[in-house]
């Protein structure tokens, strides 16, 4: 049918041509230039730019904090998705809408607020700092703000899957003598597992690239609270364009691998059950 459309509907050449042109100019050519720029470094230079001690500390923080944030979101996201789909309670619509706030709110605002909430005199810091919980200018602060920024992904990928769960299946489990916990761990969890993984990976990928909110809360101390995207900026500010490009390439490889993993996981889970 779609092939026939080409003879009936107008604008195939124009729309495809424009799409390709726009995409090449805005996305593909710039990325190629980045790769070329990075490749102008010799291998020792590249390695020095990408794998120096400070950079490695930054990658570790980026990966570790992103992973932790995604992990926390896995739990909170599942909880919120479950509550939103399964239960009725007052204010549910507003609750549901507010889940998207981290997507709609500029990351700079998130960073600004989080930087003020967890300091000693902040709304939450006044309780937490005395307990030894340093929620600002620390690695914890990075994790906290990344949780906020990537929070909706798990909710929004898991929510439709929970909506589609077949009530019969849970009833069948109950008839067979399973209690709710057994039903959840043995029947529900395996069914929503692939959505959970997808949500986790999306949250993780988003957190890896995040910059705006983190620079507010982390303090950006090299070796301690500096994340990888900050390296790019500091290289740039030192006019080390090739080094900046090299780190950027490393970052790209990281997030592409994360996305590739999502895709493989998705295909694997789809092939298994459908």
């Amino acid at each position: 049918m779609l092939d026939v459309n080409r003879r009936i509907l107008p604008g195939f050449g124009l729309s495809l041509g424009y799409t390709l042109l726009y995409m090449n100019l805005l996305v593909l050519i710039p990325i190629t230039v980045l790769a070329v720029k990075a490749s102008q470094l010799s291998w020792p230079e590249f390695s020095e730019a990408v794998f120096n001690e400070r950079a490695i500390a930054a990658y570790q923080l980026t990966m570790g904090a992103s992973f932790l944030a995604a992990l926390v979101n896995l739990v909170i996201g599942l909880l919120i998705a479950w509550v939103l789909v399964r239960y009725r309670f007052p204010g549910k619509q507003i609750f549901d809408a507010l889940v998207d706030l981290p997507f709609a709110l500029p990351t700079a605002v998130a960073g600004l607020v989080y930087s003020s909430l967890y300091v000693k005199k902040g709304w939450l810091g006044q309780f937490l700092v005395p307990l030894g919980f340093q929620g600002s200018y620390s690695r914890t602060a990075v994790v906290l703000v990344l949780i906020f920024v990537s929070f909706p992904f798990v909710v929004r990928t898991v929510q439709p899957v929970i909506e589609d769960l077949d009530a019969d299946v849970e009833e069948a489990a109950a008839c067979l003598g399973a209690n709710r916990l057994q039903t959840f761990t043995r029947v529900i969890l395996p069914t929503i597992l692939s959505a959970l993984i997808t949500g986790f990976a999306l949250a993780f990928a988003r957190a890896i690239g995040e910059y705006g909110s983190v620079v507010f809360v982390s303090g950006n101390m090299p070796y301690k609270t500096e994340i990888a995207p900050v390296l790019v900026v500091s290289n740039l500010e030192a006019f080390q364009y090739k080094q900046a490009a090299a780190v950027a390439v490393a970052l790209l490889v990281l997030s592409f691998s994360a996305l590739l993993a999502i895709n493989v996981l998705e295909r694997w889970s789809r092939r298994r059950y459908v």
Binding site: L20, L28, P30, L34, G209, P229, V233, L236, A245, S255
Partner: peptide
């Protein structure tokens, strides 16, 4: 093509900025 459209989501915003500096910046 459909997959490529998603590409920018995989690029850290800082890297996105860098792309254009490398193209149109002084250097």
């Amino acid at each position: 093509l459909t997959s490529l459209i998603d590409l920018p989501f995989a690029v850290s915003p800082v890297v996105a900025g860098l792309l254009f500096v490398l193209l149109f910046g002084l250097q």
